[in-house]
Design a protein around this nucleic acid. Structure first.
Lengths: 228, 228
DNA sequence: ATGATTTTCGGCACTCGGTGACGAATAGAG
DNA sequence: CTCTATTCGTCACCGAGTGCCGAAAATCAT
């Protein structure tokens, strides 16, 4: 095995949104992992912000995590997949929140509440969230990699709407709702990224309420932006 | 120069949605092009449907158009960019339709009309349209390449809404409308692709009207699908 | 016709992303 | 210590995408 750099040193950034250090049954059989998906993500995030996505090779990310190039591709299928962990878990959160939402709540209200609930972040996590989302929406290759993850979000919402309205999942209106909800959320994300002022959920709420009310001139003529 | 296969033979498919043969000022200076973007698109479409996207190399596409690999990348920046010509011109169509829409027409009605108007296809062109759109939404690499093209569509609508409602283009509601409109159209596309029955514009109209009316339970409880 | 100019094309070499195969390293279980 | 499970590293390979440069093929000027 080749010489490995110190993992702690390679991490550098002290912040971590999830714990994956203590998560080990201790009765694991084979050779212990030399790194983690989270560690690779942090290394990649740091390198991407420092020197750009395209200027960063997979070798550099792997080396920063003290591991070989081949091992990176055992954790992620592609270089552009490395920043989507948090988003994917958020989709799972929304899915379970929707599954447990009260049956008497109107469908779209349930969706709006689930989305807002899934988007409360600890203040310490906001800076990393910002850097990651800026990269994901700015760098073309990363924005392209969003498709499959967005699809999962959309299908989570579509499936819920279909269930609650007694329609097959592939029929038109559930599809429209799923896609439109994500579209509104992405617009809110963008607006929140551009400014640095208000809370993310304020924009999300405003965007989803506009969608619920209908995109007529009445709605469009509202105040230019929600109050911070 | 290497031996070239016959262009006519390589084209094979007789259908063409746009003419690019007679479009030549006749007083062009240098060496005439050995192929065209359209011809490469048709060759790629045929090969993708026959043997799959990932199983088709750029060499094969180029060879089918009677040209070298290097030349392919002078016409398209990437292998996945080869099927987006029609979509991009549709975006331009929508943009100009919106620019010329009557000022007294409600904003969202104008958007809906422009989208419907831009999606009338000649019956002869429908089969190719179907094959292309099925590939673009099915093959992961192609779906990923959609991001930049979708962005152009969204910004065309957002810019119009911002102009008409007197808001800056980056404010929340224009962004929401632009993204949500594309989302609804994509849902309609999917539904139309899945079935093979009705006209595309029927689904587009239904999806956009649902968006205008608001995604409340009243709308969601409508008939499962628009009548063909 | 001949040469200059302009435009497209082909070939070459190179980097990097991504994959399959295989043996080595490191742990616990017996 | 041996067996087994798991992760890792190395190597070899393919294809996408790019920069460079000279050749091909057309028009224009003389």
């Amino acid at each position: 095995m080749s010489p490995r750099v110190d993992n702690q040193d390679s991490r550098g950034n002290g912040t971590r949104m999830t714990d994956d250090v203590l998560a080990r049954p201790a009765n694991r059989r084979g050779r212990p992992p030399g790194t983690s998906a989270r560690e690779l993500e942090l290394a990649a995030l740091r390198l991407f912000t420092e020197q750009g996505f395209h200027e960063t090779t997979v070798d550099q990310i792997a080396a920063a995590a003290g591991v070989s190039r081949r091992t990176f591709f055992r954790y992620y299928d592609a270089k552009a997949d490395v920043l989507w962990n948090e988003f994917d878990t958020e989709v799972e959160t929304i899915r379970s929140l929707l599954a447990g939402s009260p049956p008497d709540l109107p469908v779209f209200d349930a969706v709006r509440r689930a989305v807002l609930e899934a988007n409360h972040y600890r203040a310490d996590d906001v800076p990393e969230l910002r850097r990651r989302m800026t990269l994901l929406s700015t760098v073309p290759d990363l924005a392209a990699s969003a498709a499959v993850h967005y699809d999962a979000w959309e299908r989570a919402v579509s499936a819920f709407v279909a269930r609650r309205s007694g329609q097959p999942e592939e029929s038109l209106y559930p599809l429209v709702v799923g896609r439109a909800v994500l579209a509104a959320c992405r617009a809110a994300y963008d607006r929140w990224s551009a400014r640095a002022d208000a809370d993310l959920t304020v924009y999300l709420d405003a965007a989803l309420r506009a969608l619920a009310a209908g995109l007529t001139d009445d709605v469009l003529g509202m105040e230019p932006d929600p109050v911070p």
